[in-house]
């Protein structure tokens, strides 16, 4: 008669746990096996949405400003900008983006709402601050710690973003828009962990990554990480030759090309 030893039980438990974790991971990971894996329960959507925009360093933020130009604040009634600590440039750029997209709602007049103030027409916008993933000239061996610290900050920022949602308090944002900075990878990672743990629903926080216009032949480091690990729902490059080069290489890692998104 076979006796059930503690060891066997342990092995069985580990196998079950690993399999469950793997299946869960497979379930929540985006895009790689076909987009729109988790459509929003309401389709087509008619209710306002909550958008998160990750702003990084100077060049990326300037590009984001251009990419965001035609976002309709009447659809995305809550816009949360995630910036790195000590980055006043990006904070002021968040206001610039707001000025641009609010100016297209002519019924509001010409003033721009300040952050944290609700408006009937253009909704609400706010800023969340996360620690830097890596400072310029920071030695490599400390990057691990600062990255981990940044990741913790991203969890906190996303949890607070859900808590402060003016669309529906406690509900996670619908979409995350990012381009190059290292913080972008951290925010997306944090969103996936929240989905993995079941804290956030799988259809929330759809991530869009837009590779920099400056990238013609190779991806940036953030882009490589996100594409190779299949972490974003939508991966966009701005040059056709780059899209062709990547899409020709592997049918598992496909990127999209919609022309130049910068203006």
């Amino acid at each position: 008669m076979a006796e059930i030893s503690a060891l066997r039980l342990l092995v069985a438990a580990i196998i079950v746990a690993v399999t469950t974790a793997f299946l869960r991971l497979f379930y929540i990971l985006p895009a790689t096996w076909g987009s729109h894996k988790h459509p929003h329960p309401e389709y087509p959507r008619t209710t306002p949405a909550h958008m998160v925009v990750v702003l990084g360093s100077g060049g990326h933020t300037a590009e984001m400003q251009s990419i965001m130009r035609d976002i309709d604040p009447r659809k995305y009634m809550h816009r949360t900008y995630i910036v790195s600590s000590g980055d006043d440039f990006s904070s002021s750029k968040a206001f610039e983006i707001e000025r641009k997209i609010q100016s297209k709602c002519t019924e509001r007049g010409s003033t721009t709402t300040i952050k944290g103030k609700n408006d009937l027409v253009v909704g609400f916008w706010d800023i969340k601050v996360v620690p830097r993933a890596r400072k310029i000239h920071q030695p490599l061996y400390t990057t691990m710690f600062s990255s981990a610290w940044c990741l913790m900050g991203c969890f906190r920022a996303l949890v607070e973003t859900a808590r402060d949602s003016t669309i529906s308090p406690g509900e996670y944002p619908d979409i995350i828009i990012t381009n190059g900075p290292a913080t972008a990878v951290m925010v997306i990672l944090a969103s996936l962990v929240l989905k993995f743990l079941g804290v956030a629903p799988a259809w929330s926080m759809n991530s869009v990554y837009v590779e920099s216009w400056a990238r013609i032949k190779t991806l940036s480091l953030s882009g490589k990480v996100l594409l190779n690990l299949g972490l974003c729902d939508q991966f966009i490059v701005q040059w056709e030759i780059l899209a062709k080069a990547i899409n020709g290489r592997s049918r598992w890692k496909q990127v999209e090309w919609h022309g130049f998104l910068v203006e």
Binding site: P39, P44, R45, M68, I71, D174, I175
Partner: peptide
């Protein structure tokens, strides 16, 4: 232009919804 049409599609906004 820009990210707007792409985001709208991903979110599930259709043109006439506007």
């Amino acid at each position: 232009g820009g990210i707007a049409p792409i985001a709208d599609k991903l979110i599930g906004y259709e043109e006439e919804v506007k």
